[in-house]
Amino acid sequence: MELSLMGLQNAGKTALINAVDNVGYSEDLDPTIGFHMREVTKRNVILKLRDGSGQSGFRSFWEGFCRDNPAKVYVVDAADVDNLFISKKELHKLLSKTSLNGIPLLVLGNKMDEPGALSKDAFTEEMGLQLLSDREVCCFMISCKNYTNIDQVFDWLLSKLKN
């Protein structure tokens, strides 16, 4: 299964790949510049995970980056309330692309272990997820640092592979 991870810089996309791959958490990850692909094997499933840069200059490439995926994965720093509006705007801009119509969406509120992180209800409201009726939308609050809900994320992704 090939999946692309999108989201603003410092949301935790690379940390999520590390968590799925069980390689451990690091506070000292360098920002992704451009796009990186890593193959991860988990429960006899090979995932090709593409980590896309979240800096503003790279966001215009997100559409092509995730067009042929069975699901879109959007990672958000749920503790960075100052950037939630930008993250919401970028997500909804991406979802407006006709080439991505109907593709299931997985939104991950990362860093739920951090002080000030939003609850799932507040996060869903702030990101406008309740407004999305043209596709299946799933949301998990996760912590890549503590591996919270990482297995549930993987199970959801597997369900998309089987469909």
Rank of each mutant, 00 (worst) to 15 (best):
G116E: 00
T32W: 03
E126Y: 12
E27D: 14
Y74G: 06
D113W: 00
L105F: 00
F123A: 03
A19M: 00
A78Y: 01
T32I: 06
D82I: 07
L100E: 14
D51F: 08
L16N: 13
R59A: 08
R50P: 08
S26H: 02
P31Q: 15
V76Y: 01
L29H: 07
R67T: 11
V45F: 09
R59I: 07
G34V: 09
G24M: 01
L49Q: 12
T41L: 08
E39G: 11
M37D: 00
Q55V: 06
D121S: 11
L100C: 04
N10D: 09
S119H: 04
L100Q: 02
K97H: 10
I86P: 02
K97L: 10
Q130T: 10
V23D: 13
S119G: 14
L95T: 06
N69R: 14
S96F: 04
Q55S: 06
K13F: 03
E90C: 01
E39P: 03
V40T: 05
F35Q: 08
L95I: 07
I86V: 08
V73I: 11
R43M: 05
T14A: 04
E39Q: 05
P70V: 10
M37T: 01
S87C: 02
K97Y: 07
N69F: 06
I103M: 13
N110P: 06
E126K: 12
P31F: 05
S60H: 08
F61G: 10
G54P: 03
L105N: 11
K88M: 05
N101T: 13
S99Q: 10
R67K: 00
K120S: 14
T41S: 12
N101E: 13
L47A: 12
